[in-house]
Computed example of a mutant assay.
Amino acid sequence: MGDFLVTCLQAATPIWLAALAGMYAQRAGVVHLGLEGLLVSGAFAATATAVGTGSIVLALAAAVAVNLVLSALFWVLTTYFKANVMIVGLGLSLTAAGATGYALVVVFGSEAAIRSPIGLPRPFDGLSGPLAPLGDLSIVTFAAVVLSWFAWWSIRRTRAGLRLSACGSDPFAAKSAGVPVERYRLAALLIGGFLCALAGAELSLAQVQSFSDGISQGRGYLAFAAVLLGGVAPVGVSVASLFFGLAAALGIQSQVDFNDALPPQFVLMAPYVVTIVAISVTALANRRRGRQQTVIMERTL
């Protein structure tokens, strides 16, 4: 049971951190479809730097630096050039997927996966007994828990968090109150870049300790779905991400239990099927709630 829970957390961590990034952006009024691109870019930068330097600190720093630059570029394109937010986000994701695959060939001379000589620290490595499975969790997984609490506290309990939410819910009113909306959106995107860098590092330096073309397997899009499913709230987004991690872990476990009896394609598609079902149920529930509110208003009037 402990091994299964650890597998759930490992599968959920990259989605969890990327979903928190999307939540910050959407709170500021930015629909962030570039989460997939930031996750892939962070994973490649972390692995390439780890291979070149052998330093985990420099690897994380490189991932963060690359994603901060990409996030700032995202903000410039949507703010000063008035580019469509959704198109820029999709462009970022598609470009990052192609660029990292091309960089594998240019930098390392091969399309095969590159293996990192180092991995992320595991704080509880070496434990025995019932707590032994915790030794497989990297420091980023524990950081995700702390960052989730910080996201809840910063949004619900600070003035900056309330202003950030105002930028998304009513930017004109926020501007009238003297809130620099564009600066808050830039801050939200930069925070998202940092979180996606950690998500990418977790994916490439903790779980498989290597980078290959297509390593993210759509986890950035699952993160965006978790933002919608979680109601753009820290607790809801965290629960939705853990739910997707549970779906992925169940797919892996079913492959182990049924061995060759279950085609691997079913395992790979399980999280995405769960995503479609969950979003469909949420959409129907929201539609029904809207109808009920309309009926109540009509009766009141």
Rank of each mutant, 00 (worst) to 15 (best):
A12I: 06
V179W: 03
N67H: 00
A99K: 00
T300W: 05
A166Y: 13
V267Y: 12
A261Y: 15
A188K: 01
C196T: 10
A65K: 03
P14R: 02
G220V: 07
A63P: 04
A247Q: 09
G230R: 00
V273A: 14
A143S: 13
A197N: 05
A46F: 05
A197H: 00
S280R: 07
Y221Q: 07
G251E: 13
R115G: 08
G236I: 02
P121F: 15
N286K: 12
G109M: 13
Y221P: 02
S93F: 03
A61D: 13
L190K: 00
S148F: 04
L229E: 03
E111Y: 14
S169V: 15
G126M: 07
T49I: 05
V277D: 10
F194G: 00
L127S: 07
G119W: 03
Q293H: 07
L242V: 08
Y221A: 04
W16G: 01
K82N: 13
G29T: 06
A48S: 14
Q207S: 10
L90I: 14
L246C: 11
V274W: 04
V31D: 13
L301D: 06
V88S: 03
A160Y: 10
A97W: 15
A174Y: 09
G192W: 06
G220Y: 05
G91F: 02
G218T: 12
Q253T: 09
L127E: 12
S204H: 09
A25S: 15
L33V: 04
A173R: 08
Q255H: 09
A12V: 05
A50K: 12
L120E: 02
L73Q: 06
C167L: 10
G37C: 04
V6L: 03
I252F: 13
A270Y: 09
I215G: 04
V295F: 10
F74K: 02
V85G: 00
P14T: 02
V64N: 01
L39Q: 03
A144V: 08
I114Y: 11
V227P: 01
A206D: 08
A283I: 11
V106S: 08
G129S: 08
T53D: 07
P117N: 02
V277E: 06
Y24A: 01
V6Q: 01
E298P: 06
A18E: 05
V85L: 04
A248F: 06
R27G: 01
Y80G: 08
S116Y: 01
A173D: 07
A61H: 02
V51T: 08
A261H: 14
Y80V: 11
C167K: 04
L127N: 09
R299V: 07
V64E: 02
P264K: 09
Q207H: 12
G119D: 03
A160H: 12
L162A: 12
V277I: 15
D3H: 06
A240K: 00
G230I: 00
C8P: 01
G135M: 07
T78K: 04
V66Y: 01
L189Y: 02
Q292V: 15
A187M: 06
S138N: 12
T13I: 05
R219E: 10
I276S: 11
L250F: 12
A12C: 09
I114E: 14
S116T: 10
A65Y: 05
A206I: 02
T141E: 08
P130V: 14
D125G: 11
